[in-house]
């Protein structure tokens, strides 16, 4: 999702018999639903997997501010601008909660940002697409945040305490994001034919990338199986994607918009919507760095960080100067 295809570093799932006594006790706690906290012993692979997943999730929030930041100066009304700004602020907050959770696992903020800026750490594929019209703001809130909610609610119950608690806070704030997006879509679809066409165009461009957010089918994935055994991942990619489709199709119907999938069909026997084949080559290509905006997103992030260095350094200088004036020495970080 925001963290896609997280590598656990393991090649096969191990049973309780294959584990050391320490690992077995750890796995038992997970199976009993006891939360793992930062000071608890944990297998190195569990720690590394969580650092990867939580930091990817955090990077996604921060990079995710950019597609919407693009339309702040061109929002149609002051109210829409203020609301969009509030959403973007929330994303910064989400990034912070998640970086904080990742840092409890023994990694520093500087290390995490360095990995992102060097192109070593990933963020969600969805944020590599451009926002071409105001209607994209609606489509993103509705489809992208909507998908995020489906992924994030189960994460509130994941085994690692700090991550699950961060997700609880995130989920409370995320619902406004989805509603804000759908509210934009409703205004456009009830407006002029031109506005409705713009809404349909945005849906056409954001539908398939949103389905791809959940990641490829992971029925055979060792990584997914391991994450499930560790109770980090509670549902498969396909299950979550199906949930998204089932709940979104009626929402599109209410708007009078059509989903850009000729194979979309409700199956009365299963009670689910069947949908067409996803083009996974596009997904892998975007993850490799060849999506429409990858280079632009990374360049913007790196520039913001390097051009903001003077401000961060000034804050430190000011803090040290103030501490000297008061006669106390600034304590080490």
């Amino acid at each position: 999702m925001y963290a896609q295809m997280v590598d656990t570093g393991l090649k096969r799932l191990r049973g309780l018999e294959d584990m050391s006594p320490q690992e077995r006790a750890f796995q038992q706690r997970i199976d009993d639903g006891v939360k793992i906290e930062p000071k608890d012993w944990m297998p190195e692979a569990y720690r590394k997997t969580l650092i990867r997943q939580i930091s990817q999730h955090a990077h996604s929030e921060i990079v995710g501010q950019l597609p919407e930041g693009n339309w702040v100066t061109r929002a149609p009304t002051l109210k829409r601008k203020a609301i969009l700004l509030a959403k973007i602020q929330d994303e910064a907050g989400h990034g912070l909660y998640l970086y904080s959770a990742a840092e409890t696992l023994g990694v520093s903020r500087d290390e995490l940002l360095e990995a992102l800026h060097a192109g070593k750490a990933k963020y969600s594929s969805i944020f590599n697409y451009p926002t071409l019209t105001w209607a994209d703001m609606g489509a993103i809130g509705w489809l992208v945040d909507g998908s995020a909610i489906i992924n994030q609610i189960p994460l509130c119950r994941c085994s690692y305490g700090p991550y699950s608690r961060a997700m609880i806070r995130v989920c409370k704030e995320e619902s406004f994001h989805a509603r804000q997006g759908y509210d934009i879509m409703m205004s456009l679809c009830k407006g002029t034919p031109e506005q409705k066409r713009m809404a349909q165009d945005a849906l056409n461009r954001w539908w398939w990338p949103s389905l791809m957010m959940f990641g490829p089918s992971d029925a055979d994935s060792v990584n997914s199986a391991q994450s499930a055994q560790w109770r980090i991942k509670l549902f498969s990619n396909d299950e979550l994607r199906q949930k998204m489709v089932d709940q979104t199709v009626p929402q599109a119907e209410y708007l009078g918009l059509s989903i850009p999938d000729p194979d979309l069909k409700f199956n009365p026997e299963t009670g689910h919507y069947e949908f067409g084949e996803i083009d996974w080559t596009e997904f892998h290509n975007v993850l490799k760095g060849n999506g429409p905006c990858n280079r632009d997103r990374l360049r913007t992030r790196v520039n913001a960080y390097s051009e903001g260095a003077w401000f961060r350094d000034a804050l430190v200088a000011h803090a040290e100067k103030k501490a000297r004036r008061v006669g106390t020495t600034p304590r080490a970080a």
Partner: peptide, 11 residues
């Protein structure tokens, strides 16, 4: 409620 990094108490 959570944590954050800052250079001093005021920030």
């Amino acid at each position: 409620v959570g944590s954050l990094h800052a250079p001093d108490g005021e920030m």
